[in-house]
Write a protein that binds this DNA or RNA. Structure first.
Lengths: 187, 187
DNA sequence: ACTTTATTTTGATAAGTATCGAATTAAATT
DNA sequence: AATTTAATTCGATACTTATCAAAATAAAGT
């Protein structure tokens, strides 16, 4: 949540009918709080509140003038924004603090018992893959295992060790010698 | 409220942290409802609701794929929007249904009694102007009045007819002969 | 046809926020 | 200094909406 909050507060600032109208009015000319209140049919306190939010995101600014504080639109800020707001970087940044492994974790959690064994082997590709990525971590990288040892390890997860073994190889998560004499975890 | 509601619904659609994250995630690759729910730590029903709003504004669309309905970002729509959303026309259109005379009306209402007479003559320029624009309507356009008649008409508004008359001329709302023999309403 | 799985819809609830009125602050004229 | 006027702040209320749980759909594999 570095600067994607900037995006969010910006959109929130504009996600109100009256604030949008204020921006539209100020695009034509500067106005005082009192004038805006009369134009919108709102109380001055309400308009003041709206203006404060627009100031906070840098869209408008105020200058004192006689009795009034006159608000005006910062058009350069508006232009800058229209160019940057929807840039690919800004868009993708909104999801940067999302844990991309959360789906795998949830699937694994859904399919495993408290003792770590699998309730069933998922039938669906996506979920099977998630579970396989979990199971393969029981093997050390760079180490070779014979089939008997592989089955022993897999039996902690499910009795159908043959299926698990086959799926692991099929998914490319484990490799094996052509003659089946040895298995190892893919890098 | 023709298409400025489009602007509003668009901003509202993006004015939510989780919907922004969804857009950010879909910018990277398509996802199913279930996956998004796991990634965001939300229930599927909630995500479904968010996606429906994003679909409604045309930012994302869904395609059925096996068990899942896979949602993807409409990047062209995103680009179109980023260009048009902050255009001067769109911005000013948000205020197009605002009654620009509302301020004058309010000022006049504040300063007049039920019988139409003025409580006081406003000291402030802006309000005085608003009241003068109201008072001048008591005169027909294209007709000439002598000073006595002008004062009779103005006396319905305030006893200080001399000030009213002077201000009306000063504001350019009424014209007069150099010798003061006749007054008429400016076009 | 039946079962499983994902999605959507529907209420209900909780969190957020727009609005107002009253009180306070700030600024300018008398 | 005192008074008027505009703006802001504060507290309360009403409205909106994000979220979830449960029920209803939809779709696929058995």
């Amino acid at each position: 949540m570095t600067e994607n909050t900037e995006l969010l507060t910006m959109f929130k600032a504009l996600a109100d009918a009256n604030r949008l109208k204020i921006v539209g009015l100020l695009a034509g000319q500067p106005y005082s709080v009192e004038e805006l209140a009369a134009l919108l049919g709102l109380k001055a306190s309400t308009v003041s509140h709206h203006l404060a939010r627009l100031v906070k995101v840098g869209l408008v600014n105020a200058r004192a003038e006689g009795y009034y504080s006159v608000y005006q639109l910062d058009k350069s800020a508006l232009e800058t924004m229209s160019r940057s707001l929807f840039s690919p970087e800004k868009i993708t940044s909104t999801a940067e603090d999302v844990d991309l492994d959360a789906y795998d974790h949830k699937v694994v959690a859904d399919y495993t018992r408290r003792d770590g064994s699998l309730k069933t082997i998922p039938a669906q590709r996506k979920k099977l893959d998630a579970v396989l990525r979990h199971v393969v971590q029981a093997f050390e990288t760079g180490k070779h295992y014979n089939e008997k040892r592989v089955n022993e390890i897999l039996s902690a997860y499910h009795e159908d060790t043959a299926s698990l073994r086959r799926e692991l190889v099929g998914a490319g998560l484990m490799k094996r010698e052509r003659d089946g004499s040895a298995y190892w975890r893919a890098e």
